[in-house]
Amino acid sequence: MEHSQNFVLFLVTLNQMITVSVVLIFAGLAGLFSERSGIFDIGLEGKMLISAFFAAAVSFATGNVWIGVLGGIAASMVFALIHGITSITFRGNQLISGVALNFLASGLTVVLGNAWYRKGGQTPTLSGDARFSEITLPFADALRDVPFLGPIYAEVISGHKPLVYVAFALVPLSWWLLYRTRFGLRLRAVGENPASVDTAGISVIRLRFVAVLIAGVLCGLAGAYLSTSQGAAFGREMTAGRGFIALAALIFAKWRPWYLLMATLLFGLLEAISNLFPNIDVFGLFTIPVQFTQALPYILTVVILAGFVGKAIPPRAGGEPYVKER
């Protein structure tokens, strides 16, 4: 079936929106768990970066991408553990700890990459089983001829790499975990009023460590996705601020899972648009420069934070270390 050019462009844009949103979903969910437990995490970026590097390095060394993903997750969890020790055990400043981890990842990935591969901080290109390949969902080809929905199923929903489907499955899972389990209730409570959780005989420290380590796993998936799915190697600074866009999406969603999915898709769409159509001509009247589309997620987040369009209120105990004896 022949499609009009506009319809093809529409499909390509949606397809790319999904591809680039995945990182934001993983990282946004990471931030969700951490911040909902009362630990600010501006180190999403650094955890993703170190994971992207180790996922690529381990994939390259073992030739098995799944082991690579585990390597990335392990690296990210080490960073998460450092963040937990500084901000929970030693009651340090959570923001400063995050800044430090971001720097550490930027430096360490290039230092190790240069020492191991001598390619200016890059890892060797992954091929074969060392990277992910696309999955074709059942009936994708059979349904292709169904008008409108057929091509959307075949081109947009089917044909992605495994981690894409993992990311989308994690959204309802996170919602269920946070809102329908005892663990989730406690986790949300510890971010609002840790003293009450403590009074109920539940360890604030343990809950927060669990939350921070979950964030480590999720950032690990985000990083591994970047270097083994979206790309086929690690490149220096390859996260390129996506950790902060994810943070922005989290605020935009007011720290709620389903809204987070919407926000990451919106920001993913903006990224896809700026990649595919750099300068947009509006009816020949004026052009929207590509920089505006790129800056829009940040501008929208500031607007939301300013509270002019529905106020974003963070978890109340966020950023404050819990001191038992008062």
Partner: peptide, 11 residues
């Protein structure tokens, strides 16, 4: 060693 070692020290 690369100059990014400085970033590690800073961090």
């Amino acid at each position: 060693l690369s100059k990014e070692m400085v970033l590690v020290i800073q961090a």
